[in-house]
């Protein structure tokens, strides 16, 4: 459904995207991972026909994303990464504008989405919070039930409850055969919904892989609190990858083999366990190596 073929765009400052190649088949939910500034949005802008590639091409449903940009939009729903609506109208007026420009007649699904995401469409846009704007943007992307939905950082600004509702909506549309491309800078955000994912770094695709394989490869840090300091020191002798020990707490890195981790901990008195929030570079150290600065 979506086909990227050596897509390259170099900006005057030398940055850009280079030889980006992957394809997404119909009905697939595809994650697009990378830290800020890696080239996710630039790639998506090409898919939307906002930019002309310097080299290579991209196609959606067989149509070139630059030459047939207007025609492709009939099939696409899009949520931009930076939400900025038009001034001087409320949420409903904005949705009516976008719907009207699409020639959309059916509003039943739109109204259902508004109801499920629970927001007041009569709020003037300039008075909306970031999360509320995100909801309006999601409705605008989904309301015409397009064949392809492209979402740039869809859950930013949504509270956990709304994130769950959002995932439900994505899964429902997936059932109907909708193809998704979803970008994110956090793996946990996409692992629940995506089938496959690509990781991009400095404008180049590092890997395109099945989500389960990626889950195996992610490196997670657990903060384990033991009953005593001795135990915390003793854990160092085990086969686990102990990153650091402070007092009775140890930081343990786990990659793939959770069973071994649980078995090893079985001999200890564990008081508390917590997962570290990590950024993408830390989760996929093996892809990002050590050269990526922790920003």
């Amino acid at each position: 459904m979506i086909e990227l073929n050596g897509l390259t765009k170099q900006f005057s400052n030398g940055k850009g995207i280079f030889d980006v190649t992957f394809s997404i088949s119909k009905g697939e939910v595809f994650g697009f991972l990378g830290p800020n500034g890696a080239g996710k949005s630039t790639t998506i802008r090409h898919l939307m026909g906002f930019m002309k590639p310097s080299k290579g091409s991209a196609a959606i449903d067989g149509m070139d994303t630059w030459k047939d940009a207007a025609k492709i939009q009939e099939k696409i729903g899009y949520l931009p990464g930076e939400i900025s609506f038009l001034d001087g109208m409320d949420g409903m007026a904005f949705l009516n504008l976008v719907g009207g420009m699409r020639g959309m007649k059916q509003t039943a699904y739109r109204d259902e989405l508004i109801h499920r995401l629970q927001f007041d469409v009569k709020t003037p846009i300039r008075k909306m919070s970031k999360g509320m704007k995100q909801k309006v943007g999601i409705v605008a992307a989904f309301m015409h039930e397009p064949e392809v939905i492209i979402l740039d950082e869809p859950t930013s600004g949504l509270d956990p409850l709304m994130q769950r509702i959002f995932i439900e909506i994505v899964m429902e549309q997936k059932e109907k055969g909708t193809t998704f491309l979803m970008s994110s800078h956090s793996f946990s955000e996409i692992e629940r919904t995506c089938d496959r994912a690509a990781i991009i770094k400095d404008g180049k695709i590092v890997v395109v892989e099945n989500i389960h394989d990626l889950q195996q490869k992610q490196r997670r840090l657990f903060d384990v609190t033991f009953a005593s300091e001795e135990e915390a020191i003793r854990i160092k002798q085990s086969s686990l990858d102990v990153v650091s020990v402070t007092d009775n707490r140890a930081e343990i890195a786990v990659q793939g083999d959770y069973n071994q981790f649980i078995r090893a901990l079985g001999d200890f008195q564990v008081r508390n366990m917590d997962i570290h929030e990590q950024n993408l570079e830390e989760v996929f150290l093996n892809y990002y190596n050590r050269e990526a600065d922790p920003s």
Partner: peptide, 12 residues
């Protein structure tokens, strides 16, 4: 960036 919404409709 609001032009993105205007262009994300099937209009050239």
């Amino acid at each position: 960036g609001s032009m993105a919404y205007i262009l994300a409709t099937p209009n050239s």
